[in-house]
Design a protein around this nucleic acid. Sequence first.
DNA 1: CGCCGCATGTCAGCGACTGACATCAGACGC
DNA 2: GCGTCTGATGTCAGTCGCTGACATGCGGCG
Lengths: 187, 187
Amino acid sequence: MGRWTPNARGRLEAAALELYEQHGYDQATVTQIAERAGLTERTFFRHFTDKREVLFGGAQLLQDHLVQRVADAPASAAPWEAVTTALGGAGEVFPADRESSRQRQRVIAAHPGLQERELIKLATLSEALSGALQRRGVPARTAQLTADTAIAVFKAAFTRWLEMPERPDFAALIQEAVEEQRTVVAG
Amino acid sequence: MGRWTPNARGRLEAAALELYEQHGYDQATVTQIAERAGLTERTFFRHFTDKREVLFGGAQLLQDHLVQRVADAPASAAPWEAVTTALGGAGEVFPADRESSRQRQRVIAAHPGLQERELIKLATLSEALSGALQRRGVPARTAQLTADTAIAVFKAAFTRWLEMPERPDFAALIQEAVEEQRTVVAG
DNA sequence: CGCCGCATGTCAGCGACTGACATCAGACGC
DNA sequence: GCGTCTGATGTCAGTCGCTGACATGCGGCG
């Protein structure tokens, strides 16, 4: 047992999500978030670099997971196959309840600054996938284009994953989006 | 002749670009930028919503131009053809000297916050292209996937446009990237 | 037993951004 | 010509995000 009540970071995340949703991102001050978590503003900034970052803790997990899967793909797999197969397994790291994901998306959708942060997380993910592909021998420019194109697929699939009534199989949604995109660019 | 020296907005843009490059984005204060332009901090924030936006005035022009070209494409053109043809004409709205574009890219590359802003400009552009496609009868989901995929192509082509020694024909770079992407997703 | 590490608290300060109100050259109606 | 109105700018005060420097005190470790 530590000196302080445990999981300060998790309490800050929960407090922030609640306040952002109830009063809006702009109205919620960092001081309020910290107080609700039983901490001080200064401690908030020791756990998160800024007021936005508290919503994006999961991005790093997703990225590590995907990079690992690309690295682990059989040597025979083509770049596009390696990446899309990895994306198909992303459902494993999504939260058990889609509702918390939807809540988070609602907060983000309501604030441009949070959309900016989400976009750079996707861009960082794209860079990471590109790096994983390059380690498989794919040339840099091709790797980046492949990764960017894959992100377009991921976005489409994730949007559907949130929208569908019953929790869907993420791999199937990825497969659908891949096929739709192939149709599009063949056009 | 107005009461004030003209083109306040342009002077603020120039002053900001210089200071961001010379001293770094973080070190340059808005007060400094405004003073260099012969104005006050308050006036800066009347022309630009925040310290970042001063670097992104051209994005709206590009967007309007591309949306117009998608709308003007012949009815017979498939969505992908309409969008990529429009992208090919984007070279018309780039600055005459690539050096100022490179300077701007260097500043952006040096600061994550500016990268965020650039990404949301691209996302906004993607939304606008998606809207233009939907006005041509393309279903919403397909339109967005088409636009996102097109943005991946645009990024690749623009990067090359900045890098090449002689000013290249942007339409040709778009065409190259389209073909490379088709190869990629063909697996 | 005493020292140390580390998560947290306290405090002071900077700079981004905003709202309210003042100013004043030029445009415009008469 | 003359008063009025408009719109870009200035002035001022205030909030809040974020940071650096230093203090504090429990738990562990020698």
